[in-house]
Design a binder for these strands. Structure first.
Lengths: 342, 342
DNA sequence: AGACTCTCTGAAAACGTTTACTTGGCGCCG
DNA sequence: CGGCGCCAAGTAAACGTTTTCAGAGAGTCT
């Protein structure tokens, strides 16, 4: 249907080589030929066939983005960050999601062979087949938020541990002793790191209490309801993400428990609505868009130089404690203290 | 780097044709050969090269998704809906965003030639070059929320008009007479439709008052602050989307104006946080994920049958009025009344 | 037992590009 | 005035598949 290079060549009365030369690197082509080709091309509304082109060029100008599950602002922001960086470099984005585990990820991954120049993947899942086998050999890859031992390539990981420790320590410093943690799913790397950070932040004096959750608003709601009804009501709650924190807040408010007066509350991620709930949520800010951007930049580098020296590095993405009213420590420590490194 | 079909053939001591036959439609191949091929393939970790394959198959198993700007829950949900439907059909998703206008969209569009089997695009922008020229001829396309005259293909449009009319009428029915509308950007089709719906919903008795906005939280905040300070404070505000409504709510609350007691408030979209702000926001629910899913299904159909009969149809995606506390009519009309069709 | 048919396999063409190599024409220098 | 060299344009190979076509071998029917 669409015009091919042959059609253009025929119409311009030149060889297909001349058409290609004119349209690409334009290495030495007569003005006469050049003009004829351009006219023919625009007349036929010609666009090179990407598949054919990339077959011989060995470059697709596309990078694959594998995400655990597209969900909420978090991923929207991530995609946004990656997309902007990609677009500014003339790269396309092949997005794939909902791989519930590494096996499924491996599947999605192999089907990308010949489709992408590099891979950006976020796979916090733990267990299952390793990804190394599935990775088409020689395909540059940058990982995000993964626990996989490096060695595959570069990785960017959010400082989940540091952030969780910081917010927990902040609660402790605010005077709370009995702090409950609503954790994320057990097979999620970030979730584990946040639990670890929580424990580290508690210090010696406080006893750890962990409730199961799965990062959904509903699980936060259920946890909140349970806590409100409980006779061992804690002084503070740190939910492993804002979504659960908000669900929890909803349940507490519904039960007549005042936040932060009766129970202080903290979250993680600083999703946009965190500022808008009442009371505004104390949380840990993660700049996912920035992480996406950096990951893509890094990927571009290793595509350009496949044998580059900077392989197998792990970069930690800094987070920032954001103190708002929900933790009850607003008046004391309202200056958001930067928390960087791990 | 990666193994090709030739490597497999050599290792299995058969021709490449046999390899291809074994791996694809497996049309009659001897168990002996079959086993040798499979063994060789798995040994070499072979994956067909997608570009080469699609070059001859004339099918990429990829569909392009063009979005105005990836932003917030709205697009996250849209991508989610499309992605799920695509994945269940073994299709890949090439996502492109941030085309600020039709010219840029046209650009992104042509670079997808040979990369995708079909196009799913959402382009609410008005003005600029028409898209018909840019569309690679013969590429099945499904549009979403566009004002372009049909004729290009199928289109799905959210019932912005109907939704806006419904919520405005609801406010009128609740007894408010002076209702201000915070509108979206002037070059956005949906924005115009919502203004139109607002006017229609007001009926004869009420005077229309429209404030400019641009769909951002900040513009809603500014509008809210202006209204709070104004001496002609309205009885109710209908913001063209929830994001602005929430910004407005924030400003009003900050200024000591109580919602809904002093000013009633309504939004549009029913983003997840609409339920969680205080008071919960009365709004119009739009199931974007469902729209994405339906659009993709429709696209798949027209890819399978390029000369299908159902071309150039426009389907309206129904919306639903969701009455919550912010409009002050909660106790009266709390039953969410379905609003379908346009 | 011979011929016909059927089935499986391999050779080769095709998809739409890019690019190395070849050819041809022209100018310049000897 | 003739040869040499350079530059532009064309020819063809290559990328990794799928698929058509042809051939070979075996089985069956007469």
């Amino acid at each position: 249907m669409a015009a091919t290079i042959k059609d253009v060549a025929r119409r311009a009365r030149v060889s297909i080589a001349s058409v290609s030369r004119t349209l690409n690197h334009s290495s030495s082509v007569t003005p006469n030929v050049r003009e004829r080709v351009l006219r023919a091309a625009s007349r036929l509304n010609y666009t090179p066939h990407a598949a054919a082109r990339s077959l011989i060029i060995r470059r697709t100008h596309t990078i694959g983005l594998l995400l655990p599950d597209i969900h909420g602002e978090y991923f929207s922001e991530l995609i946004r960050g990656v997309d902007r960086a990609a677009r500014s470099r003339g790269l396309h984005l092949l997005v794939s999601s909902t791989h519930g585990n590494n096996a499924e990820a491996a599947d999605a991954l192999r089907s990308m062979n010949g489709r992408v120049d590099g891979l950006l993947m976020m796979s916090p899942y733990i267990g299952g087949a390793s990804l190394e086998d599935a990775l088409p050999s020689g395909l540059p890859t940058v990982l995000m938020n993964t626990h996989e031992p490096a060695g595959i390539g570069t990785a960017f990981v959010v400082d989940d541990f540091g952030g969780a420790r910081a917010i927990t320590a902040h609660l402790v410093a605010a005077g709370y002793q009995d702090i409950v943690h609503i954790r994320g799913p057990a097979n999620d790397f970030q979730s584990l790191e946040r639990v670890r950070g929580y424990r580290a932040g508690l210090g010696a004096g406080c006893r750890a209490r962990v409730i199961d959750g799965d990062f959904t608003e509903e699980s936060g709601y259920l946890a909140g309801r349970a806590l409100a009804a409980s006779d061992t009501r804690p002084q503070a709650v740190f939910a492993a993400n804002d979504t659960m924190a908000i669900g929890c807040l909803f349940a507490l408010t519904e039960a007549g428990v005042r936040v932060p007066h009766d129970i202080a509350l903290g979250g993680f991620d600083d999703i946009p609505l965190a500022r808008f709930v009442s009371p505004p949520l104390t949380t840990v800010r993660v700049d996912v868009a920035e992480m996406g951007r950096r990951a893509l930049e890094s990927l571009v580098v290793s595509i350009a130089d496949p044998d580059g020296a900077g392989r197998s590095s792990v970069e930690t993405v800094p987070v920032e404690l954001v103190v708002r009213a929900s933790c009850g420590a607003d008046s004391r420590g309202q200056t958001p203290c930067k928390e960087a490194g791990g």
